[in-house]
Structures are given as C-alpha cells and as structure tokens.
Computed example of a mutant assay.
Amino acid sequence: MRRTSMVAGLVVAGTCVAGPALAVDASEVSRKLSFSEEDSTAGLDVGVGLGGFTGDLGDETGVGGLFNITANAQPWKYIGVEVGYEGQNIPIDDARVLGGNHIWRNNGTFMGKLGPVVDHKWHPFVGAGFGLSFLHASSGSAPIYGNDWQTELPLAAGIEYRLGHLSAGVRATYRLVGSEDLTTIPGTTEEAKGNLFNGNLTVGGRF
C-alpha cells in the first residue's frame, strides 16, 4: 500500500511539474503554426530535376532531365494551389531503336497542396492534382514509338523554405499515368504501361 501511495504521489507531483511545461510547449507550437497575412502569399517558382517512367515503359526508357515553371498561391491556412508547365527529355533505351533517340514530354498540371507554414518560413506539404502531357517521340524512333497524349494524376510531397521574398524547395512527385499509347512491350502487341516518378529542386519568389 505504501509503495502504491508513493507511486501515486510521484505521478501527481510529476503532473504538477510537467503541466506548465506542456502548456509552454503547446503555446510555442501554436505560435509557430500561426497564420498571418505574411503567409498568405502568391509566387512564381522555377525548377530542375530528374526522373522517368516506371513499369514496362521504364524498362525501355532511361532517366531524363526536366525543368518547370510554376505559379502558386497560399490563400488559406493549410491549403495552397499551383499551376505550371513541365518539360522533360526522356531517353529511349530500347534495342529496337537506334541510340540517341528520346521522348519530349510537355506537361501542364493543376495541383492542390496541403500543409502548414511553420514559423513563417518552413512549408512542408503533400499535394494531389491533375495533369495532361503530350509525348513527342523523336523521328528516329518511328515506327516503334509514336506521339501520344496522356493524362496524369500527380501525388507530391516536399518542403519549401522562405526567406523574405525568396523561396527554395525540394519535392518528389509520383504521377499515375493513363491513356498511354506510346509503344508496345518488345515481342508482343501489348501496350507498354508505366507511371512517372520525378524529383526536383525549385527556387522562386513570394509576393
């Protein structure tokens, strides 16, 4: 009974001591997550990166460089939006095609982003949206590869750092691809399928 009373006393004492500390921590977290007009910004980013197809398409293509330009806004506390263009040059690595051929991907995407602005500087986020790409295969890859439109459902995760009116960030984007009719799996008449995985760095301004 005495041991039980001692444990109970220690729990009560610990709670009394920890209570103010927890209150301070909660207050500090609330301060860092507070939203102000300073955070409700619009901006423009440019980015570069690398990526390529997965699945059957990834077996016949390589990793290609990309660049993008994106307009964005953070009109609500946890929700932002962006719209942008992305260009990518994906090399073809297919025994049926001579070396040096590639696929140009021209993409437009609208995305919603979810995440807090921490301490008016850090902005971790996840995003989802819709995109449409035109794939243009170089003439030397015909007739094995053709041109095609494809729909994309991008899922992104990243973090941005804001310093005054400047911003820098890193993100990874996995795009679920539909309606591709680019090429066939070697030795078959079945369409080669695959999704896209890209990573990129961005720099820009906030106004």
Rank of each mutant, 00 (worst) to 15 (best):
H123A: 11
Q150A: 11
A156R: 09
A137K: 01
I90F: 11
P91Y: 15
H102D: 14
P143N: 02
G115E: 05
L114Y: 07
V81D: 06
G99P: 10
P124R: 02
H102Q: 13
V118H: 05
W122T: 07
S133D: 03
E82P: 07
N101E: 15
E86R: 14
E86C: 10
H120T: 09
S139R: 01
N107I: 00
R105Y: 03
S141G: 00
G87S: 12
Y161P: 04
G146F: 01
L153Y: 13
P143Q: 03
Y85H: 09
W104F: 13
S133A: 12
P91N: 14
P116D: 04
T109P: 00
V126L: 12
N72Q: 11
H136Y: 02
N106Q: 08
I79F: 14
I159D: 04
L163F: 10
Q88C: 10
Y85N: 09
V97R: 10
V83G: 14
D93K: 15
K113G: 00
A71K: 04
D148G: 04
N101C: 08
N107E: 09
G84Y: 03
G108P: 00
E152Y: 05
H136F: 00
V117I: 10
H136W: 00
I79R: 04
G158D: 06
K113M: 06
G108N: 00
G131N: 04
G131V: 02
I159K: 04
A156V: 13
P75E: 08
A73Y: 09
G131H: 03
K121V: 11
W122N: 05
V83K: 05
F110T: 02
L114W: 07
L135D: 03
V83C: 08
V97W: 13
K113V: 07
F134A: 05
D119I: 04
Y161V: 06
D148S: 12
W104S: 14
T70R: 11
W104D: 14
K121L: 07
L163Y: 11
W76I: 06
P91G: 15
Y145M: 03
T109W: 00
G146E: 04
L98M: 12
A128K: 04
P116V: 07
L153E: 07
Q88A: 15
A95C: 08
